[in-house]
Write a protein that binds this DNA or RNA. Structure first.
Lengths: 210, 210, 210, 210
DNA sequence: GCCTAACCGAGACGGTACGTCAGGTCTTACA
DNA sequence: TGTAAGACCTGACGTACCGTCTCGGTTAGGC
């Protein structure tokens, strides 16, 4: 799963233009900013990229897959520098993620492709590989680091570990997304502080009495 | 805000058919189940409801607003019976909400209208009134009940209260939505138990050391 | 065959715009003049007519049928005034037909739709009704008139009559079309005179010795 | 005009494959039979011929010119054996030409390229050289033979001769084409007999009284 | 018991975007 | 230089929905 090996194995014929690839993804992000998801059209993206519509369809089956790829790269910016404590790490990553969600291209695109993916298994897979997994590793790193610091106990059961990692991921990402897009209220320092306190407290309590 | 007074004040002429209203909303839900959000069309809904397209547009400005109204009523099913403890209450509401999100009509529609609302203020308002506020009251009730039981301290500062209520709401709703739709993994008893433990522990810790 | 009763029997709904019909046919002729058959596009015709493309496709299944209808009306201009002799009548109708074929819209369209009709039975039928039959009556009238004048004998056998009418029609129309479009040489008075002489002579000889 | 010298004079580099030429023309005829003119595509012809599209375009400027060349060779089959009388000769050539026009590849292609040629001078020239002139010589031969037999007088005026030859050609070819493709009725022995009688009678009458 | 305003169905209307297809060109690697 | 393969741009295709409009006809009040 999440195979990175491109399906292109043909050795003959004119090779695909890598410049076109880049131009298309860039144009897609620009169109998302200007028009939003629902008014973005394949034809417009093609025009912006200085490329024919067929060149888009040769690479992506539909608008959703194109947008996932266009947005995915933005999630590479997320980083987790060691700030000395679990709570500081959490606050930092939440703020980073919130900043990403404030960008117009992600704000309008993320929920749209998730909505689309509820009826499109290949798209769901693509989202998992391109977006979800890139975020999940941050939780992993943060947890390991907190264990090294002694802030969290070292759990030997891999099932429990994975379940807790997944839970924390869904709670953090879900809360930020819900706050930003559904409740439509700002993810500010105060809110982030409360969330971090809740999580650190909760993790501590759970660790103390499983 | 959230005015329930319909803009229709005309007292003369033939009144609108309430049967048509019901048939349209029912047809919309059926179409969502069969086709999903992106393949649902106004014309198809009209046909299913045995109604002319004009009759739809006389009542709703566009597809998004129609779908919000069609789905909103489902959120009335959410209830919060007193199960004797904060943790039991949380587990119950999470499971209820997850069951709601498993229904194909909500699964495909909810994220779609949220995505649409990022660029449509009136729609955002309609979602808040029809869907978000209906859920938020459950958090309010649950918190009050836990305070009566003595599980949570009684906070006198209304600002803190509202902030915490909002946080808990975003955490619960966000986590469930993210688990169900983004991570695309089941919201089962195990996961719900872990989430409830985390929240109860976190609330306790935060209450102990603000 | 050649039913003139329109297939539209629906009594409900908005009736079709007759102005649109006229504007489309007019625009089609204009486009034929400017662009010729192969560069004429449905979209361009729609734009010229100030009409949506769907409005064209609601009336005509394809470019060929549209062009047949647009050009057919021009064949109504053909007339057969009594010029006193069979030969004069023939010369007149040939010149008229040649003038029609010189018009850029017919020149470019006629052979094209005939070519298309070799693989399209409904189109062939449409051409027969809209174009061929309108020309054939001229032969009928001319023959009757010549018989009244005593220039041709009155044949009692309807089979022979119809066969000869058909032959004369194919010879006249075919010769003019071939001269004008295939040989690409002018249909001038000299050529018309020779053709008429050949035909009158031939008809006389055939009548004398069946 | 009608130069047969190919424009290729380069003597260096890899020479063009003559097998490819033959395969392409054969594939074009096959495609005409199966698909007809308007659905024949250059890409499909290339595939059938086992050749790249570039190879087609290196030899022919466009679809029309390719089809003219593919069909032209079929007109070489037309012959004019001496059957002993002008009328028999005419009947024979008409039946031959009719048989040629019945073949699906010519039926669909001939009128199409003629239609195309009304707006394309080079194509018109190519049709004249490759198709029209090959047929015209049959009229010449038939006339000379009839003069030798004494069926037709020997006209000394070359202008009159050429005009009459051209007329007869347009009448015969035009009548057959019109009968077969426009009237869409069979060119059978009865019809051919009537046409021949008309022509022989007409030529006789014209010769008797110029 | 009629008037009349607003409703209703049907379906045509001008648009916009779709995803596909063909035409004709260009770019590879190879012969 | 010719060739097969296949990507490229251009532009038209015919379809699907959008949201609006125009019909003929219906249905409740209010008079």
């Amino acid at each position: 799963m999440c195979s990175r090996t491109s399906p292109r194995t043909s050795r003959t014929g004119r090779p695909r233009s890598t410049e076109a690839d880049a131009a298309i993804l860039e144009a897609t992000r620009a169109a998302l900013v200007e028009l939003g998801w629902s008014k973005l059209t394949m034809g417009d993206v093609a025009t912006r990229a200085g490329v024919a519509k067929t060149t888009l369809y040769r690479r992506w089956a539909n608008k959703s897959e194109l947008v996932v790829d266009a947005v995915a790269v933005l999630f590479d910016e997320l980083e987790l520098p060691d700030l000395g404590s679990l709570r500081a790490d959490i606050e930092h990553v939440v703020l980073q993620f919130a900043a990403l969600l404030e960008r117009p291209e992600t704000k309008t695109a993320l929920m749209a492709v998730v909505a689309e993916s509820t009826r499109d298994e290949p798209l769901r897979e693509r989202i998992r590989c391109s977006i979800v997994d890139r975020q999940k590793r941050l939780v992993l790193d943060g947890r390991r680091r907190a264990q090294l610091r002694g802030e969290l106990p070292v759990d030997r059961d891999p099932v429990t570990v994975e379940a807790t990692d997944g839970l924390i991921f869904d709670v953090i990402a879900g809360a930020v997304v819900h706050r930003a897009l559904v409740s439509a209220e700002p993810v500010d320092a105060d809110w982030v502080g409360r969330l971090s306190a809740l999580l650190v407290g909760g993790l501590g309590a759970v660790a103390a009495a499983p």
